[in-house]
């Protein structure tokens, strides 16, 4: 028990220190712009299809679940607004984070882990380059930046999925579905979604680069690093989801109280 706890604490501490190193590298010696755009492009292209598809189906699921209840209250008109609001505030960022952690997180830690166990990272250092600056930073920034593109795509696809299901399943036509979106999805909700997405992306990018960078022990080690990345990102994302919800709730109360 103490062993588990101490290894967990070591992991968390290592991750936080690694994040600090990344931030220091970002400020002191930023990576080349080419590398950065390269990564943004790679991450976005890699995840476009899965994110779009997942977004579509999540929108559809939300509509199916909400439709019956809305019908009971005679508020079918709100269906589109509610489903979209829930997606923007909560489900969208969460979905993007899960999809990214499966696709990009695992891929990045596999890639960096492979570079580590085949001594490529040592070689980079020996040839006078800083692996944090050359390898880690572009990937880190790439994940954070492209998560916004993917979030937008996921949201659009989920509205699309919701519209189609709303029409097919609850008899809400497209126009009615879309009409209430602007009234229910307010600026604070959008901000909430963006902040969440940003936080998740930071967490995800830190964990996957850290786990890959510190991998040891051949092909098996790379496999283990990927598994650990997948598990710890999922758990951390769920925790940070609660944390951001909680903090944003407090912020809203404080702002309302001040008014």
């Amino acid at each position: 028990m103490t062993k588990v706890a101490s290894s967990l604490l070591t992991d968390i501490g290592g991750c936080v220190l690694f994040f600090k190193d990344i931030m220091r590298t970002l400020i002191r010696k930023p990576c080349r712009r080419v590398d950065f755009f390269d990564q943004v492009w790679k991450v976005t292209v890699q995840s476009v299809s899965t994110t779009g598809m997942a977004g579509f189906f999540v929108g559809a699921i939300m509509t199916v679940q909400f439709a019956l209840q809305m019908k009971e209250f005679g508020a079918l008109g709100f269906l589109g607004g509610l489903a979209t609001s829930a997606t923007v505030r909560e489900v969208g960022p969460l979905l993007i984070a899960f999809m990214l952690s499966g696709k990009v997180g695992a891929f990045t830690s596999a890639e960096l882990g492979t570079m580590r166990v085949t001594e490529q990272i040592d070689a980079i250092r020996c040839l006078g380059a800083d692996p944090l600056q050359e390898m880690i930073l572009p990937r880190f920034l790439g994940i954070v930046v492209s998560s916004f593109f993917l979030l937008t795509l996921g949201l659009i696809m989920s509205i699309f999925g919701g519209m189609i299901m709303g029409a097919a399943f609850a008899g809400v036509n497209f126009e009615e579905y879309l009409r209430h979106i602007p009234t229910i999805v307010t600026l604070p909700s959008v901000l909430n979604g963006i902040v969440k997405c940003f936080v998740f992306a930071l967490v995800l990018a830190t964990i996957c680069t850290y786990k890959g960078f510190t991998a040891t022990g051949g092909a098996k080690g790379v496999g283990q690093a990927v598994v650990k990345t997948a598990v710890s990102t999922m758990v951390c994302i769920v925790i940070f989801d609660w944390l951001t919800s909680f903090l944003s709730d407090i912020t809203v109360r404080v702002v309302l109280g001040a008014q």
Binding site: T118, E119, Q120, D122, A123, I124, R125, C126, L127, G128
Partner: peptide, 16 residues
């Protein structure tokens, strides 16, 4: 130091 001392790794460690 690394300009003076070059290291050849056990694996080729080439950038793929």
């Amino acid at each position: 130091v690394r300009r003076k001392v070059g290291m050849v790794f056990q694996q080729p460690a080439l950038f793929d």
